[in-house]
């Protein structure tokens, strides 16, 4: 029996006995992780209980509050509405990884400056979703989303505190600052090109 036969057989055997555990191998914040998980395990419990990454919060656990927002394969998702067992091969980024990468350092500084934590429970999810707004605004190029558009995008992270004014302020400040920075980069480009042309 070849290795691949064995692999194939063991896969079908696993399936036939309805195994309590699934083997998954995925990337979490850039690190390769292999674990056995129960099918009933959602991504947030996997992160919090199995990997000790407690930055992502388990709030309502039925897809309403958004405190569990994480990235899977580059897109934000509800961690409580994703089966850990389905994530073999996936690339997961949590608030810990996003924070360590420095991608949202300016956003986080603006959350502090604007006192935008509110009770703080929603903050990791808010940062993940706000990072998504920033990324999409950069993709779309030019223009800063309006406050109404920011609120629309954050609407999936509304929790209990209500208001969210300071959060919208912090996101708006970051968008504007990045937009200004991008503008001055653009102005710098012709100078760069002409100096290259003259070489």
């Amino acid at each position: 029996m070849t290795a691949s036969d064995r692999e194939h057989r063991s896969a079908s055997e696993e399936r036939s006995v309805n195994p309590p555990q699934q083997r998954i191998s995925l990337t979490v914040n850039g690190e390769r992780v292999t674990r056995h998980v129960e099918p009933r395990r959602h991504l947030i419990d996997f992160l919090r209980l199995d990997l000790g990454l407690t930055g992502s919060h388990a709030g309502c656990e039925h897809g309403v509050c958004g405190a569990c927002t994480v990235r899977v394969d580059g897109e934000i998702v509800r961690g409580c509405l994703v089966l850990a067992a389905s994530l073999d091969g996936a690339d997961v980024v949590t608030i810990e990884g996003l924070s360590d990468s420095g991608e949202v350092a300016d956003l986080q500084a603006n959350f502090v400056a604007r006192n935008a934590a509110q009770c703080g429970f929603c903050t990791p999810g808010m940062i993940m979703t706000a990072a998504d707004i920033l990324a999409h605004a950069e993709e779309a190029g030019g223009g800063t989303p309006s406050r109404a558009e920011i609120r629309e995008h954050l609407s999936g992270n509304y929790c209990r505190c209500t208001g969210y004014q300071a959060i919208v302020d912090a996101v708006e400040d970051t968008l504007k600052a990045r937009h200004l920075a991008a503008d001055s980069d653009l102005r710098a480009v012709p100078a760069l090109q002409s100096s290259e042309a003259s070489r």
Binding site: G63, G66, V77, R78, H153, G156, N157
Partner: peptide, 9 residues
């Protein structure tokens, strides 16, 4: 339809 994170799945 729902919110961005849900529309992604």
């Amino acid at each position: 339809i729902a919110h961005p994170a849900i529309r992604n799945r």
